[in-house]
Write a protein that binds this DNA or RNA. Structure first.
Lengths: 208, 208
DNA sequence: GTCTATATTGTGATAGAC
DNA sequence: GTCTATCACAATATAGAC
């Protein structure tokens, strides 16, 4: 949190802002330079090209975006603990990085192969999560559900309100309102309740 | 389904493909021309500018993307019917337009004000859906939940697997696999089960 | 309507002084 | 390390022949 920022940091900060707002193609080196309070030539002095600079920003953004999901996927901690911790941590991250989901989704969709190369997701195994879910189902602790679907659904419930923020804000709250921020704040509690409710065993009623 | 396509239609088809794959900024008029089997000049003859052409494609895409959600929001049909019909219809649309969610989310995030202007969402009222949910809650038919959150959650569960397809495909199934398409096919059933389960009243157990 | 140039502007990137 | 000036090229858009 030092007040004085090195030129390199100033560039990275500016690049984060401009790239996440306009994407790789939409971003202009001039805008990044302006935002950083320097000129274009310096950008190329510190980072060779627009591409190189972008790669750094994207990789960093993707780790933030997917890091805790990867942890929920691979950790050996008890399932319910993992899910609860994930929702807490993840929505906090998104609240502090409102543009993250839109940025990552946009870039991944525009250049899938390229962006997936930038992600070192090698070695991530999904079987831990799947096994844990299967175990809980077998024990009757949760209703029958597949691990893959549960995993995707949990992330969906967390991410989508942020990824679709501009549209949802406008459609649900009307353009004038700022109430959407409050709505996002409530999401943490809401997603937890929703997931827990969705997982309650079917036979609760019949077990009388 | 006529075999012969007018030049105008050929351009629109090509534009759909190129814009949805690369976005407004990433798309090249040359690519659209090549894809349509004509030259750049003709693009400008039929549609004045890249912007104009894009607006047509985006508006069309957005209607597809949000049309049935708007219907779920405003229709006076019974809540459960609406939700069930929405999930069916919506996931069918997405299955037939895999790039739609990524495209719309990307553009909306890159130029929010501009894209929202292109959407004539004026006059769409959210109170119908909210009222219906409140009524079902009051009757004890579903557990306590806010209409806004339920609405966003349903859409999230449907859209996110498509919007995040390239990442999810790679992370959950490993890059080699084509199993993700089967996964998407299952989503319709899965989302229905998930939402219905999540809405079961809390007091089912206590009502013994 | 459709084409081949061509004009024009954007913007990423480099050269070279300080 | 930082700047100004400039290059080189890519991409939208138009002119004008057929």
């Amino acid at each position: 949190m030092s007040e004085i920022q090195s030129t390199e940091d100033a560039i990275l900060t500016a690049a984060r802002k401009v790239f996440s707002a306009h994407g790789l193609q939409g971003a202009r080196m001039q805008d990044i330079a302006d935002e950083a309070g320097i000129n274009k030539a310096l950008l190329h002095y510190y980072f060779r090209s627009k591409e190189k600079l972008f790669e750094i920003i994207f990789q960093e953004a993707f780790s933030k975006f997917a890091g805790s999901a990867a942890e929920m996927m691979t950790s050996e901690a008890p399932l319910f603990e993992k899910i609860d911790a994930f929702i807490d941590k993840y929505i906090d991250i998104l609240l502090n990085n409102l543009f993250l989901p839109g940025f990552v989704i946009a870039e991944i969709n525009n250049k899938p192969e390229r962006m997936i190369d930038l992600i070192s997701s090698k070695g991530l195994r999904f079987d831990v999560f799947e096994r844990q879910v299967a175990e809980e189902v077998a024990r009757g602790n949760i209703r029958a559900i597949e691990g893959k679907h549960l995993f995707v659904s949990i992330i969906a419930l967390c991410v989508f309100p942020f990824a679709g923020r501009p549209i949802l804000k406008s459609i649900i709250f009307g353009n004038e309102s700022i109430a959407y921020d409050a709505f996002l704040q409530e999401r943490k509690q809401e997603v937890k309740r929703f997931v827990i409710a969705a997982l309650r065993p079917d036979n609760q009623i019949n077990e009388i």
